[in-house]
């Protein structure tokens, strides 16, 4: 293994560590939210420092890789992609942190029936499953697996749109609970955003493996002539 290969491998491992850390943060914040466990929420909040530290380390290592090894072609695409993947994962970590913060702030647990109406657990699990898929795609450099997350993201988007309707109806029934509803809506927004970040990571994996740029392609497809 050349020096360059070793460095690249160690970057890849750091990326994987970031995946695992953010996945754990998401799992814990989900559990803390559903069980209203403020201790677990505190743990998520404290671990955020580790996420930030790893984010800085990966950024610094990527910079060194570029400066010292002047990578080209596949190596260059990998390091460019990893910087973005790292950025996206750090944002995923931020959202898990945000959810944990809400748990500390609210006094009463959310009504389970409302969570069911909102398909909250289904949404959270879909986001977790997307994160797991994209982690596997990253480990195996598998663009087929990476492409799987687009379909799952559609589920998140649907639940997000539906949540707006459900919450507006519930608020009309009991306006006193508006604070809880708004908070819940903002958590749902966060999960929806996590889905988008994961699809960004999929784009980056496809970019570094296949040199194909998928970013902004959706918008182009929409603008068909005559439409």
């Amino acid at each position: 293994m050349t020096n360059l290969d070793q460095y690249r491998e160690s970057l890849k491992q750091s990326g994987l560590e970031m995946f695992e850390l953010c996945e754990k943060q998401m799992l814990k914040s989900k559990e803390a939210f559903l069980t209203h466990d403020s201790d677990l929420a505190e743990e998520v909040i404290h671990t955020e420092n580790r996420v930030n530290a790893l984010d800085l380390k990966i950024d610094r290592d990527c910079e060194r890789f570029i400066a010292l090894h002047t990578p080209v072609a596949g190596d260059l695409r990998f390091v460019l992609a990893l910087r973005k993947i790292n950025f996206d994962l750090e944002r995923v970590g931020d959202h898990a942190f945000g959810v944990a913060k809400y748990i500390i702030e609210i006094n009463t647990p959310i009504d389970p029936k409302l969570l069911e109406n909102l398909r909250f657990v289904e949404m959270y699990d879909s986001a977790l499953s997307m994160l797991d898929d994209i982690k596997d795609a990253y480990i195996d450099d598998d663009t087929k697996k990476a492409r799987k997350v687009y379909k799952k993201d559609k589920v998140l988007n649907k639940i997000n749109i539906n949540a707006f309707k459900v919450i507006s109806e519930e608020v009309k029934k009991d306006p006193n609970l508006i604070d809880q509803y708004l908070l819940l809506f903002s958590i749902i927004k966060k999960i929806e955003r996590i889905g988008d970040l994961i699809t960004n990571i999929a784009e980056e994996i496809i970019f570094y493996r296949e040199a194909e740029i998928l970013k902004h392609q959706k918008k182009k497809k929409v603008r068909k002539p005559g439409k």
């Binding site: 050349t2 360059l4 290969d5 990578p71 080209v72 072609a73 596949g74 190596d75 260059l76 695409r77 040199a211």
Partner: peptide, 17 residues
């Protein structure tokens, strides 16, 4: 050539492998 060469052999050479 330096971002996305067609041939694996080229990529291996320019990346020093």
């Amino acid at each position: 050539i330096f971002t996305n060469p067609e041939k694996k052999q080229t990529e291996n050479y320019i990346t020093g492998r």
